[in-house]
């Protein structure tokens, strides 16, 4: 918990890392590798931003971590187990500790905001209680306070499809935090939002991550946002990590290497 753990430099060699990827590879079609032997360690705190052009495997990488996509080979070490080997109940138990924020929010549109936040506890409830919406009182209380902290306290009973994009993403973040996770994955959380809302959402993620001491891995298109909020930037190109270091160390030449041109300027 000391300050040195938070610094990006010591993150890679810190013994208390939250997640370690070893030689992770993914092929959607045989012979075409989307991820090529990725090995990374993530610290127990701080935001790691993965940048890179679209189609470079950023999303695949993040989705491999909680196995929404199955890696072809490699290890995913999280809380002392290799997630790549897990199936069924053990996999679900591991997923309970990994929150995820999606590009298109992926809220259940026809449920209320508070129900969407409470979805974060589904891994701990039997299905019949989920069906009858019998959530424990302390979960309901926590859902309300999380909604307050993302600034949507008054929207608890609105239906999710009535919210704006930025509001939906706030609900998405509250749902991820509701899991009381040891790691949050954010897959392009700002790509469907306008620039101003994007900043607000990144601000919220950074604030919550710092306040609750949860490490965050975020895929992000926007290099400026990555530099501004991340403690560590990982640059990917064609399925490989080509840069890994603090935002300050990221130079123009690196960006040229990552994006292969001036495309990152948008």
């Amino acid at each position: 918990m000391d300050a040195s753990v938070r610094s990006a430099k010591s993150a890679n060699d810190s013994a208390g890392h939250a997640l370690e990827l070893r030689n992770l590879s993914k092929e959607y079609r045989a012979g075409i590798q989307v991820l090529k032997n990725i090995s990374l360690k993530f610290a127990g705190r701080g935001i790691a931003a993965i940048i890179g052009p679209s189609g470079t495997g950023k999303s695949t990488l993040i989705r491999c971590i909680n196995r929404l996509t199955d890696p072809t080979s490699g290890e995913i070490l999280f809380m002392g187990t290799d997630l790549a080997q897990l199936k069924g109940r053990r996999l679900r138990e591991a997923r309970r500790k990994i929150g995820m924020v999606f590009q298109e929010y992926n809220l259940v549109e026809r449920l209320s905001v508070i129900e969407n936040v409470l979805c974060g506890r589904l891994g701990y409830l039997p299905a019949w209680r989920a069906w009858l919406r019998r959530f424990p009182a302390k979960d309901i209380e926590r859902a309300f306070s999380l909604l307050d902290s993302v600034g949507l306290g008054d929207f608890a009973n609105e239906r999710a499809d009535r919210l704006s994009g930025g509001q939906r993403q706030r609900v998405g973040i509250a749902r991820a935090l509701m899991q009381d996770p040891n790691l949050v994955l954010a897959d392009e959380p700002t790509s469907s939002l306008d620039p101003k809302t994007s900043v607000e959402i990144m601000e919220l993620i950074a604030r919550q991550a710092a306040a609750q001491g949860i490490p965050v891995i975020v895929n992000i298109h926007n290099v400026e946002l990555a530099k501004r909020y991340a403690d560590r930037v990982i640059g990917m190109s064609k399925g490989e990590v080509v840069f890994d270091g603090p935002p300050k160390a990221l130079e123009h030449s690196h960006l040229l290497q990552i994006y292969g041109g001036e495309g990152w300027l948008e």
Binding site: S112, I114, E115, R133, A137, I140, E141, A143, F144, S145, A156, N157
Partner: peptide
Amino acid sequence: ASALPRRWHR
């Protein structure tokens, strides 16, 4: 405020 548990009904 938090001592008063908020009720929620579907």
